[in-house]
Amino acid sequence: MEVKFTKSHEWIRIEENTATIGITDYAQKELGDIVFVELPEAGDNLIQGQQFATIESTKAAAEVYAPLSGEVLELNAALSDNPQLVNESPQSQGWMVKVRIRDVSQLQSLLDEDAYKDFIGKENK
């Protein structure tokens, strides 16, 4: 199982041709207390780089961008009643969608964990 990252602070866990997507711990900390998560519907098609979800704190609304293109297979329904899961467990229980990967070559554009850590280190300076 492999976890990748984007510069827009999404994480992607890849299992065979399915990708589970959420936002990173860094991103949830920046947003603060999350109060609402708006997800796409199952069957929707994500396009890499385009917005597919919105995460709201009391004072901000952040767009979440698709790290990969593909069809939405499943949503994390628990987020509608418990959006705080994104704060409490961003990279596990706070996952957002599962997507069937359409184009494996898109994986190459993603960062591995070290590169992402490097990136946020620089962004903080």
Partner: peptide, 14 residues
């Protein structure tokens, strides 16, 4: 005041 993310001071053009 609540659900303010609908509003212009947060969501601006959206």
């Amino acid at each position: 005041l609540t659900l303010q993310t609908r509003e212009q001071h947060i969501r601006r053009q959206r």
